[in-house]
Design a protein around this nucleic acid. Structure first.
Length: 267
DNA sequence: CGGCATGTTGCGCA
DNA sequence: TTGCGCAACATGCC
């Protein structure tokens, strides 16, 4: 359920169901999710407090409470929040719950995560992972110059640099794959082979890829949309030029791309 | 059974 | 200190 557009949709949902709600009970049953931190801190920090806002940066969510406490939530690969009735039985793969009351009505938020790659950390100050995030395309926007400089000092593949959360927050395998196709740049191109004009094209392409995923989402339900330009479509025709799409492994992640219209830059 | 998956971390090495 | 390359994490699904 990851990638920036998905997390932004979760932020909107949580914002709607949580702001002004007071926590009656909370529990995080999984120590793995709490790192760094302890699962027992979860209830101690939350109970009795009222949610004020839900903020997102990259793939991280921060739930702010009225006394300065905060909860960080990263959905990993398979995490998600569900709002259910207060007396609903545990969901499949439920790892944590927050029971709240608002306007006299009780409900329960459940965190589900089959693979447990997600994180759930309650505390009183920002965590290092949050502070290390680079600019978010929707919050601060992408600075072309900064992006160019991030490329210029690395020789690894441009796609791997794009997925570094310190460079741009929220770009994952799907967005990086899609954006490089839009920008017509081969994902294997070394970062230090790119020019400022390429950084500008990639910045615009990321915004376009995000907009497209929002459009996909509004037509469909939850989960990843499958109407991508090239992600997951290796072997099929390029939607732009018709050539057969290729596949390459970069940093352990699969990338689909078009050898004909995505140009490989070299130094 | 084998292979793949929207993400991040930790380790050894240069 | 920074960058690089990988294995590892845990589980579902095809």
């Amino acid at each position: 359920m990851p990638e920036l557009p998905d997390v932004e949709a979760v932020r909107c949902d949580l914002q709607r169901s949580l702001v002004g709600a007071t926590v009656r009970a909370a529990q995080c049953a999984d120590a793995r999710l709490a790192r760094p931190g302890s699962p027992s801190a979860f209830a101690r920090v939350l109970v009795g407090r009222t949610f004020e806002q839900v903020v997102r940066r990259g793939k991280w969510l921060r739930l702010d409470l009225d006394d300065g406490a905060r909860v960080f939530s990263h959905l990993g690969m398979t995490g998600g929040w569900r709002q259910v009735a207060i007396d609903a039985p545990p969901l499949r793969f439920e790892r944590a719950r927050i029971d709240v009351g608002r306007h006299g009505r009780a409900s329960s938020l459940r965190y589900v995560d089959s693979r447990r790659f997600g994180r759930l950390i309650a505390g009183r100050k920002d965590i290092a992972d949050w502070m290390a995030l680079g600019p978010d395309p929707l919050v601060e926007g992408i600075d072309d110059r900064r992006l160019f400089e991030a490329f210029a000092k690395r020789r690894r593949a441009v796609k791997e640099i794009l997925m570094d959360q310190r460079v741009i927050a929220g770009v994952g395998n799907i967005l990086a794959t899609e954006a490089l196709w839009v920008a017509r740049i081969d994902p294997r191109s070394p970062g230090n082979a790119l020019l400022p004009v390429h950084a500008r094209a990639i910045a615009k392409a990321i915004q376009r890829a995000i907009a497209r995923e929002f459009a996909n989402r509004s037509r469909k339900g939850d989960g990843p949309a499958d109407s991508f330009y090239v992600y997951g479509r290796a072997g099929k025709p390029c939607p732009r030029c018709g050539a057969r799409l290729s596949s390459v492994d970069l940093g352990g992640r699969t990338s689909a791309f078009c050898r004909r219209c995505q140009i490989l830059r070299r130094r």
